[in-house]
Design a protein around this nucleic acid. Sequence first.
DNA 1: TTCAGAAATACAATCGATTGTATTTAATTT
DNA 2: AAATTAAATACAATCGATTGTATTTCTGAA
Lengths: 339, 339
Amino acid sequence: MEHKKATIHDIAKALNIDSSTVSRALNNSPRVTQKTKDKILMKANELGYQRNHLASNLRKSKTFTIGVIVPRISRHFFSSAISGIEETAYNAGYNVIICQSLEDLEREKTIAETLLANRVDGVLISISMETNNYDHLEGLKQRNIPVVFFDRHCNITNNSNVIIDDFQAGFDATEHLISHGCRNIVHFAGTPNLEIYKNRFQGYKAALSRHDIKFRETFVLSSRLMHEDGIKNAKKVLALPNNIDGIFSANDVAAISAMQYLKAQGISIPEDIAIVGFSNETISSVIEPPLSTINQSGFEIGKTATNLLLSKIDRTSTRPVYETIILKANLIERKSSLR
Amino acid sequence: MEHKKATIHDIAKALNIDSSTVSRALNNSPRVTQKTKDKILMKANELGYQRNHLASNLRKSKTFTIGVIVPRISRHFFSSAISGIEETAYNAGYNVIICQSLEDLEREKTIAETLLANRVDGVLISISMETNNYDHLEGLKQRNIPVVFFDRHCNITNNSNVIIDDFQAGFDATEHLISHGCRNIVHFAGTPNLEIYKNRFQGYKAALSRHDIKFRETFVLSSRLMHEDGIKNAKKVLALPNNIDGIFSANDVAAISAMQYLKAQGISIPEDIAIVGFSNETISSVIEPPLSTINQSGFEIGKTATNLLLSKIDRTSTRPVYETIILKANLIERKSSLR
DNA sequence: TTCAGAAATACAATCGATTGTATTTAATTT
DNA sequence: AAATTAAATACAATCGATTGTATTTCTGAA
C-alpha cells in the first residue's frame, strides 16, 4: 500500500488552480493571496505533501549540501567539530557529507573529486598531515565552490580559515612548564607542512626566549604524533644527555603514549618530567596523572566555520571574500604538569 | 572565469547527435555502437563533463543517499561504525547523512522527519536510550524506505538487525569475573527499554545461575550509564551491606567513572573489586588499571549493516525481507579483572 | 536490385519544482 | 460607467538526465 508522494501538481489539480501558484504559495511568495495560501497549505497537509528537494534543487541548481573533509572522525576534536557543523548546517537547511582522509593525501584527492562530482555548495576542510600542496582543491576554486579551512589550515594566501591561536597556545603551554620549574623542555612537534604545528613550535620557541632559556635543535622531535611516535619520542627523551624535565607535545595522543612509556620506565610524572599536551582528548582527563592540555572547542570551531562557509555560499553576503577567524584556546592545568 | 558545467546536450550538440544517445553511451548501454561511445566519451572528457546527479536522481526518483541515526558520534563504537558505513556506502555510490539523536527521543523523531523529507533511500539506526516506541519510524515504513537497526535494535518483530550476541557477551563477562573468584557481583544495567541491555543483563543472570550463585535484585543498578551514573553506582556499591568483589558494567563509560571513584576511596582494583566493562572505548586501555571489556568491532558492524541495507534498497535482491545478523564479540582481559 | 529484419540513432515525454511573462480579475479613479 | 492601474493567477519554458517509442540506416538474403 505504498502511496505515491503528492506533488504540487496534485495539489493544483485538487484545487483547480495552476501549479505555479501552488509553488509560490508554498514558498510564501507575496504574489499569492493569503486566502489561496491557506487553501493550498490545507490541501498540502491533507495530501501529506513534502517538497521534492531533488526537483527543487535541480531547478535552482543548488544541492544544499556541504562537504566536510577531516583526517578522522574518531578523534574527539573532530567529532565535536562535526557536531557543531551539523547543528549549524541543518538549521540552515543544509545537509552534510562527511569524509575522512585518514591522513592520506591520495584519499584526500579522491574525496575532493567526489565532492565536486556531488556538486556540493561548499567545503569545510581540515587537511591531512601529508597534504603539502593544494592542487586537488583547484577544481573547487575553479567552479567557484567556497572552501573554508578549519583547525588545520594551509599556508597559501587567499582563503578563509577558522583556527585557534596556535602560537599563543604553544607559548602558554611552554611558559606554564617554565613557571613550574622546567628548564630542559622537549617539544614533540608535528609534521612541518602543517601551519598549526609550525605555530605551536614557534610559540614554544618564543616562550623559551622570553625566559632566557636557550633553544636547542635537539630538543625538537618531529613526527606524525601517532601513538607509536609518542613512545619513540619518549625513548629519545631518555637517551638525551641533558636532564629533560618537561615535555610540550603538539597533541595529546603522543603525549599520552609517551607518558605511559615513561611511567613504565619508573619516571614519575610530573616530579621528574612535567607534560603538557594539546587538544584535550577524552582520554586526557582519565589517564593517571591527568594530562594538562590545551582545550580547543571543536563544537565552537565547527559552528563558526560553518557559518563562515554559509555566508560565502550566499553570494549576497557582504562579508569580505577571504577571512580568517581566530578563536580562543585555553590551557587546562591538570596534575601532569603541576609540581 | 567560471565556466558553466557541460551537460549531455553540450556533448550532443558538439557531435551533432541526440542527447539520448549521449546519455545511453555514458551509461554504457548496448544500444549504442562502440565507435559512437568512444567519440562521446572523448568529447565528454574534453568538455570536463560530470553527470548532474540531481537531474539523474530526479528522473530515477532515487537519491542514492542513506540516513544514519546514532546516539552520538563521539563514542568510539559509533565513530568506527560510521567509518564502516561510509566506506561501504561510498563504494556503492551512495552518500551518507549522519545524525545524532543525543539520546533524545524528540530529537530522534525530528531526525526521522528530516530524513523522510530528504527522501533517503534507506536508514541505518541505533536507537536512543529514551526510545520506547517506534511511531516515528512508521513514516519510513509506509513509504517503503528500508530500515536496518544496528547495535541498539528494538524489540518489535519484522525488521532487520545487525547486532552482537549481547546475552553471550554478558554471560562471558560475568563468568570471567566468577572464574577469577568473584562471588558478589554487581551489575550496572542500562535503561530497560533497550534490548541490548536486557540481553546483557540476562547473560549476567544466566552466568550466576550456571555457577550456583544466588541472584540478588539489589545487585542490579539501572541507569543511563553516563559518567555521573558510574559514580552514583559506585557509591551504592560501597553502601551495600554485602562485600562486593566484582562489577560487570553494561558500558565502559560508567565502569570507568566508577573505577575512578572507587580508587579515590582507597579500594584497589582488581584486588578488592574486579571490573569488566562493555564496548572497548579508547579510554579503556589507557586507564589505570586497564579495563577488561567486551570488544565489538564497530567498523565490521557498520559495514555489515550497510551491506544489508543496500540489499534491501535493491528490490531485485533475493535476500529475505527481514533478517537479523549476529556478529561476534569477544572479551578482552585486562588488569581490571585479573587477580 | 529489392526487401525483411536487425541495429543504431532520433524524437519526445517525463521526473517535480521554479520563475519570467502573459492574462485575467479586482480595485480605484475620474 | 468607462478607463486606469494594481493584484492575482495562469501559461509555458526550464533545470539535466532518462527512457519508451518511432524513425532511419545498415546488413544480408532472396
